[in-house]
Design a protein around this nucleic acid. Structure first.
Lengths: 205, 205
DNA sequence: CCTACCGATCGGTAGG
DNA sequence: CCTACCGATCGGTAGG
């Protein structure tokens, strides 16, 4: 209950509400007054936590990516068979994109154009680390024969397929995240495990 | 040189400049003054061609999709082997997304949130027709054994991989559109042609 | 953290 | 199609 704890709480609250509003309407269509009102502040009081509206956007993207990075780096440290490793990455990536209250990374994906140059450079540095984790696991998959020859374009197409899900996934829709993870794995890994490779009939639904 | 032709020319000019600016900066970050200036008009003169700025956005998206639809429906009418058919769709889709001066569909993909409800409904109707063309060809692929069991999620993942290319493709970058088409086809069609299936070494680069 | 307000810019219009 | 301008809203600040 110290002043610093309160302050951090307010800052976090501002970030969460900003992320939610940016995701819903976009950065430009969200006013600082909207953000203040959603946080229970008067129209000019957000300046005690952020210098500019642009700084709020940068903080949303950086914090979101920072947390996503921690999650997948933890997975990278686990000892798992390549396919399990890959599946865990996909599952975590999709939870970061589609999970309840997960608005930070969608803002990064949707409103990239609105971020100014200095902010972009910092985000790009984090993204490189994020992609490196994937590259290591994909390389394991290749050695195990589960992904014949992953090229740079392959990896970009894969991220595209995953990131685009934000555009069509609806939490209360007919497809749940677990189904999507299973389908995505099958979609990406052309060399299916030998035991199931000749039996397409096992697919449910 | 009739007044109507001039009028249609101006309207087309306004649409092209709007598409270019919307794509570069986004709908909200582009002012009607920016559009007027790019077209060589005074700040209020765009109103003789469109009622509101929102109408400009709707026209950009609808015209872009209308033209894309004509292109792939022409392909659908050709008699081709399934794989060739699919490759032609991918090639045309990517040209619509990445070709020089092709800003209309990227605006549709980027600024979907900025379109109001009536506009969305009209665009959705066109998109359904667009997807139907793909579904028919994918079904041919399935019968030919080139796409084991295409599900709804598979199709959404495929469109995601393709549409996301707009985010990373750079005309002067190291990857050209032809390479991407070839990689995309390999990426989607897990059952490779028998003659080349066992010889990954033929890949160039 | 609030009240009151600033200069700038926005989409769109009146009158010609 | 232009000139001149409107009311509204924007991000951000001065003073307390």
């Amino acid at each position: 209950m110290s002043r610093r704890a309160d302050d951090a709480g307010r800052r976090g609250q501002l970030l969460r509400e900003s992320a939610r509003l940016f995701r819903e309407r976009g950065y430009d269509a969200t006013s600082v007054r909207d953000i203040a009102a959603a946080t229970g502040l008067q129209s000019g009081s957000w300046v005690y936590h952020f210098k500019t509206k642009q700084d709020i956007l940068a903080a949303v993207m950086e914090q979101g990516l920072q947390q996503a990075l921690e999650r997948i780096e933890a997975i990278a440290r686990e000892e798992l068979p390549p396919r399990e490793h890959f599946r865990a990455l996909v599952r975590t990536h999709l939870d970061t994109l589609l999970g309840p209250g997960q608005d930070f990374i969608p803002v990064l994906l949707y409103d990239w154009r609105s971020l100014d140059k200095p902010g972009r450079d910092r985000v790009i540095a984090l993204q490189k680390r994020y992609e490196q984790v994937w590259e290591d696991v994909i390389h394991q998959l290749q050695r195990a024969g589960d992904w014949a020859m992953p090229t740079r374009i392959d990896r970009l197409l894969m991220f595209g397929a995953l990131n685009w899900i934000v555009q069509w996934y609806r939490p209360r829709g007919p497809l749940n995240a677990t189904q999507i993870v299973a389908e995505a794995e099958k979609f990406f890994l052309r060399t299916l495990p030998r035991a199931r490779a000749r039996r397409p009939g096992v697919r449910r639904s």
